[in-house]
Each structure stands twice: as C-alpha cells, then as structure tokens.
C-alpha cells in the first residue's frame, strides 16, 4: 500500500502531539484564553510551509494560483496572529503599586 510506511510514524507523532497539547493547554488560565486562541492560530498557520511548496514547485498555472492564495491567507495568520498575540499580552499588567 502506497504511503503506509509513513502513516504509522505520522500517527504516533499526531497522537503524542495531541497529548502534549492537552497537557500544556489545560494549564493556560482562563485569563489568557483569547491570547491562547490567537497564538495557536498563528502556530497552525505553519501550513504556509505547505502552501509555499505548492506555489513554488508547481508547473501548472492553476496550482500556482491556488498556492499563492494559500500562501497569502496563511501568511496573514502568521504575521497577524503573532503581532496581535503580543499586542494583547503587552496589555496584561500587574497592579502598579
């Protein structure tokens, strides 16, 4: 079966990452749930990597256009997500006195 040799290791990676995610994220206080969403959103915009490969290695115009739109959409999340998360976190301050 084509692709089976990589499927199992990939499933391991997926399951373990989901567990790590569960462990780490349950410890994020409700105070920071909005920045959390924004940050995970920026992180999952790593799909920009896949989009770059499609846009750059394609030989047909259709895939190039699809890839380029995908790069733009994902990149807006990368840039917007990280900047916005930081902008929010900067606002969380302790009592001055």
């Amino acid at each position: 079966m084509v692709g089976y040799s990589t499927l199992m290791p990939e499933l391991y990676v997926f399951i373990l990452a989901a567990f790590v995610g569960y462990m780490v994220i349950t410890r994020v206080p409700p105070l920071l749930h909005t920045p959390l969403m924004s940050a995970t959103n920026a992180i999952s915009a790593i799909s920009v990597v896949g989009a770059i490969l499609v846009a750059g290695s394609a030989n047909s115009l259709v895939t190039k256009i699809l890839g380029t739109i995908a790069v733009a959409a994902a990149m807006s999340n990368v840039v917007g997500g990280f900047i916005l998360t930081d902008r929010m976190l900067k606002m969380f301050k302790k009592e001055k006195r």
Partner: peptide
C-alpha cells in the same frame, strides 16, 4: 523542490500586508 520564487514572494507579501493591517 522549489523551482520558482515569484509567486511565493507575491503571496508572502500580500499575506504580510493583510496580517499587519489586521494586527
């Protein structure tokens, strides 16, 4: 694997502008 960069750069550029504007 990447052969051409033009399309990628256009995408990255547009995406960054949108992202910064939104942020």
């Amino acid at each position: 694997e990447i052969i051409t960069y033009e399309w990628i750069i256009i995408g990255l550029f547009i995406g960054s502008i949108i992202g910064i504007a939104i942020a």
